[in-house]
Structures are given as C-alpha cells and as structure tokens.
Amino acid sequence: MVFQGLADRLQQTFNKLKKKGKITEADVKEALREVRLALLEADVNFKIVKQFIDKVKDRAVGQEILGSLTPGQQVIKLVNEELTELMGGTQSKLTISSSPPTVVMMVGLQGAGKTTSSGKLANYLKKQNRRPLLVACDIYRPAAIKQIQVLGQQLDIPVFSMGDKNSPVNIANAAIEHAKRHGNDYVIIDTAGRLHIDEALMDELIAVKGQVSPDEILLVVDAMTGQDAVNVAESFHKQLTLSGVVLTKLDGDTRGGAALSVKAVTGCPIKFAGMGEKLDALEPFHPDRMASRILGMGDVLSLIEKA
C-alpha cells in the first residue's frame, strides 16, 4: 500500500535521530519534511499544510525528549496530537431546537452525497425514535425528487414534495408547516448540488435559509476532494454560516485530507462520516482515526503508543 511507504520512510527518519536530550530544529526539520509530503499526498490543502507544519515546529523545538522515544518519534507524536486536535472532538450530535421541528439543511457540490446522506440521517434519527420528515428541494437534477421519494419508501419515512414547479423557498416553508401539523420533530431539507461560485444558486440557498432559519446547515463533502476543498468550504461557509460537515465516501481508499482542509477553514465540526451507499452506512466521525488515516501511519502511531 501507499500508506506503508510513509511508515517505512518515517521509521528510517526515526532511526537516524537516535540522540537524546532536547529536540533540535534539525531533528524536527527532517521528520516534518516527511510529514509535509504525507499531508500533501493525502490532499490536505498546501496552505493548511504550511500553517500546520509551522505550528508543530514551534511546539516541538526545545522540548525535552520523553524517556523511551526518539526525537523523530516524539515529533510524530506531536504531529498526531495536533492533527487530532485540529480535527476536533467527537460531535456526532445534531442540535435539537427548543421549538420543534428542528430544521436541518443539506448543502454541497454536485454529487457529493447530499440526497443519500439526507436519507441516512433520517434513518439515524428514526432509530432514535424521532419522527423526521424529508423534504425534496432539488427541483433541478433529473429525477432528484424521485430519488428521495424512493429513499423515503425504503426507510418508511415521509417525504414532502411539491414537484419541480415551485421554488425551494416555498417548498421548504410549506414543509415546515406540514411538519408542525403532522408532528415531525426533524425536517431534513435536501437541496440541489451547486458550485460555490454559482451566484444565482447560492442566493437561492441564502433565501431558503432566510425563510426557514435552519438549526443545522450541514456541508456534505466528498472525502476524495482535492486541493479545491478549501475554496468550496470557505465559500459555502461565508455565504451560509455552516454548522457542521458530513464527510462521505470514506469507504473508499482515499486518505481524506480534505477533512482537515474543510475543518481548518470553517472551524465547523465534522459530525458524520458516510461509509457506504446503504442507508445505514452513516457513522459518528472519529477525529483520531481520521488523523492517522490522513497521515497514513496507523502502525507507526501504535508503535509510539507502545514506547
């Protein structure tokens, strides 16, 4: 595997750095060079990588070396700690509104996994004895309404739709009224995929937000996203003030550095991870696991933990 390569490379770096005492700038430099490459290979945005490396360097230089660790290992330990912290704590909880229904709006680029994640989230809530309502606000994509209706059927969860001739603002508004009348405590609004630079469609989301004041606006991000993740996340966040992120397609073999980029530019917690196409494939997001996955060195970390 690609991952193994990095672990080996780091091990070599460790072996070279056997001396004890205080960590020197030279120790740090060598280890961090490998870390930088690992992060870039994992698709973490280069600007975020730069900030991150500088921060670790500052923290590491001059530190006393712990008993059993080599300087290299200690740097990696620091890297992992910083990375885990940057990824945030475990927060796979949705806000609950004090005046139900709680409104959740799903937004993101085309094909990221919004509709599927809407279904998964509804399923997740249903299992907690909630009564979610799915709302079909994608009036553009061919058969988008049918898609969410099929998911609703599969899950036995109601889907609110007004066809594709009404504006998403009107649909969302009517859906909330519907939810109030029918005792739905969660309303999950599926929106059409759009580019963050598409002003007309971004304005549409702003209008929906203005109308229904969502308690959660979740950005759905494909874990395979590359360097552009920062632009996408920054732009969605600036225009909508996101409350969280759903990271999809983590069942693939991507390292998923986009997670770090998105977290770094929005500050929003990654609340859920999509782990497959099936409607139960939604998991709480684990920052520590994601950190090792991005670094691609789970085994090196376990080595450090043992030391």
């Binding site: 290979e41 680029l109 494909d222 395979m224 996203t225 552009d228 993740a229 991507t254 390292r255 550095g257």
Partner: peptide, 11 residues
C-alpha cells in the same frame, strides 16, 4: 473522473 477529486483519481 470528477475534476474536484484529488490524488485518489490516480488510484
């Protein structure tokens, strides 16, 4: 291939 995809597109 989605142009938004990073290094995983190679895989």
């Amino acid at each position: 291939l989605d142009a938004t995809t990073g290094q995983n597109a190679l895989q």
